[in-house]
């Protein structure tokens, strides 16, 4: 990893689902996200937001171009290496939380370090620390099924940041939350950004998109730098 390298560097990255019929969900695009950025990716339904997240999160491989994560060319990696990179460099936050219902909040957070070689005691210690960071120090032993949506999403954020990833990838993190909980969550993300974390939030909500220091708009599988309003004006011009 090159320390000066951007966290995300898309060089002509595109993805076409084979179909039939083939769908060009992401047209070959250039995008650079530097370390410490807070980027929101906004676009209407079906525009290719999740496709972008899957590529950026190494869950899916692009069919065109080169994707460099932390300066590492991900195109030449074996599946096991992509998995390792994903586990160590990226923290995921999903719209539907994806917590294990029968495991306590703390156990859910430790899961993020299960495969990366962190010793058991250290995992518990770091999980407790991460839960305190998201304001859930008092609910470590609670089961997710006994928690509110806002609390659940904060557990998910604790899980995402506990492994000290270089990138926090959030897919519609406020999608299942009311506006008050959404605001708490966004403020939490802003706090993490202020601490130096690189945060990418994917949303279809313009209000959420405006909270980012930088906004990338995606329309019909094409990435544009700038908020959606500006992009629309650009298109009109």
């Amino acid at each position: 990893m090159t320390p000066s390298a951007p966290v995300i560097a898309f060089r002509g990255v595109g993805l076409t689902y084979p179909g039939p019929p083939p769908v060009e969900a992401l047209k070959p695009s250039e995008l650079t996200i530097e370390r410490g950025d807070f980027v929101t990716v906004v676009g209407p339904s079906g525009s290719g937001k999740s496709t972008f997240l899957n590529i950026a999160g190494l869950l899916d491989a692009p069919t065109a171009g080169t994707y460099l994560l932390d300066g590492i060319d991900t195109g030449v990696l074996k599946d096991s290496e992509r998995t390792a990179l994903r586990g160590r460099h990226i923290g995921f936050v999903f719209q539907s939380f994806h917590l294990m219902p029968h495991r306590s909040a703390q156990e859910n957070v430790t899961l993020a370090m299960l495969y990366t070689g962190v010793p058991r005691a250290e995992r518990a210690r770091r999980a407790a620390e991460a839960l305190r960071r998201v304001g859930l120090g008092h609910r470590m032993d609670a089961l997710p099924s006994r928690m509110s949506g806002g609390e659940r999403q904060r557990v998910a954020i604790a899980r995402a940041l506990v492994g000290h990833p270089s990138l926090l990838l959030c897919d519609e993190p406020t999608g299942n939350l009311d506006s008050r909980n959404a605001d708490t969550l966004l403020r939490l993300l802003e706090g993490l950004h202020e601490d130096g974390m690189t945060v990418v939030v994917i949303t279809h909500d313009a209000d959420v998109a405006d909270r980012g220091a930088r906004t990338v708009t995606i329309r019909d599988g094409v990435l544009h730098d700038g908020p959606s309003r500006a992009v629309r004006e650009q298109e009109r011009a």
């Binding site: 390792a84 586990g87 299960l114 495969y115």
Partner: peptide, 16 residues
């Protein structure tokens, strides 16, 4: 399936 996807996202290999 969801749990499996999550584990893969957190660094589990398919053999794990």
């Amino acid at each position: 399936t969801g749990e499996i996807g999550l584990r893969r996202a957190l660094g589990a290999r398919s053999r794990h």
